[in-house]
């Protein structure tokens, strides 16, 4: 239960068309991630699905039934907001109980579900505290707890981790993934952090200005980006783009090569350049190579410690089978 279909959905705010006609199919139990640059309409799309905004035209179906005009409460979806949106004057227990109280779930059933959620999310110790007395990560768990007890057809998350620090983010990422494994409920997750997208998603939807640029599994998007935008957006650090003669030699307008697919050495190689910046992460080293004559800067990844420094001249060799070719229209060849 939790199949969502959007057909020809559009959304305008006044004269501005934020979502041009859009089709999307989300299958039961899938973990779908919406990614895209800021302002591309991710939140708007999520709110359309939730029913917090009305669609301008088009149709939304949930589990095969028309839901376009249903009020949010009757779509059986639960949402976790970026600001958590906990009710500040209620204790954690009351926050979690609120949706059940509204649905008039019997008291003992309420308690049973609260206990279950508290156990799953480690909320036990602070059920009687107010949200103001919790840390960001704990608040996030409470917000998820409030969503779980409704036993919804699908969960909607709008950048739920963006207010947390890096370490906590990694932890919560895993917790949400585990939750998905356990509940096997459809989840739609909005983020602009592509590490989150790559690690959590069954299916990534890349958006730009309300358009779907590509839909696919993380590895599909990584291996075969459909156009320059997706190629540049997925992968960290960004793919290097090279135009001109070098691209022409491959029969393309632009070629793309990921930093991890370029060999760096001080011996002879296909391209030459000078290291402008080197970033040592311990496990990896990133070099920003200038003066290659191909692009302003070429980013290269080397594993582990490499004895190369700022100012050194290096040779770069791309792995021939990992070169992505794009035409003048930006589409993959």
């Amino acid at each position: 239960m939790g199949q969502i279909t959007l057909s020809q959905v559009t959304k305008r705010f006044g004269d501005v068309e934020v979502i041009p006609p859009l089709d999307l199919q989300i299958d039961d139990g899938e973990f779908v991630v919406f990614v895209g640059p800021s302002g591309c309409g991710k939140s708007t799309l999520l709110r359309l699905i939730a029913g917090l905004e009305d669609v301008t035209s088009g149709e939304i179906r949930i589990d095969g039934t028309e839901a376009t005009d249903l009020p949010p409460a009757r779509r059986r979806l639960a949402m976790v907001f970026q600001s958590y949106a906990l009710y500040p004057h209620m204790s954690v227990r009351k926050n979690i109980a609120f949706p059940m109280k509204m649905a008039k779930v019997p008291e003992d059933e309420q308690n049973r579900r609260i206990e279950a959620a508290a156990k799953a999310l480690n909320l036990g110790d602070y059920l009687d505290r107010k949200p103001g007395q919790l840390s960001g990560g704990q608040r996030q768990r409470v917000a998820i707890g409030r969503a779980i007890v409704r036993e919804p057809a699908a969960f909607l998350f709008d950048e739920p981790l963006s207010n947390l620090d890096a370490a906590l983010r990694v932890g919560m990422r895993l917790e949400i993934s585990e939750l998905h494994e356990r509940l096997a409920t459809t989840m739609i997750y909005v983020t602009h952090d592509q590490v989150e997208a790559m690690t959590m998603a069954d299916k990534i939807v890349v958006l730009r200005a309300g358009h779907i640029e590509q839909v696919g599994s993380p590895l599909e998007l990584y291996r075969a980006p459909r156009n320059l935008f997706v190629a540049g957006f997925i992968g960290s650090p960004r793919m290097n783009f090279i135009e001109g003669a070098e691209a022409g030699a491959h029969g393309a307008h632009t070629i793309g090569i990921r930093p991890e697919h370029i060999e760096v050495s001080d011996g002879p190689g296909r391209w030459q350049g000078r290291i402008a910046v080197s970033e040592h992460l311990g496990s990896d080293t990133f070099f920003h190579v200038h003066d290659t004559g191909l692009a302003d800067v070429i980013t290269v990844r080397a594993s582990g410690e490499v004895g190369l420094r700022h100012g050194d001249t290096v040779a770069l060799t791309p792995r021939a089978d990992q070169i992505h070719r794009f035409g003048a229209d930006g589409l993959r060849l």
Partner: peptide, 23 residues
């Protein structure tokens, strides 16, 4: 967002007033 969360949680306009706005 609190009002929207309450709306998603199935609170009627009256309960939104009673449980979210009034406190």
């Amino acid at each position: 967002e609190q009002l929207e969360a309450a709306e998603m949680d199935g609170a009627s306009p009256l309960s939104r007033f009673r449980f979210i706005m009034l406190p």
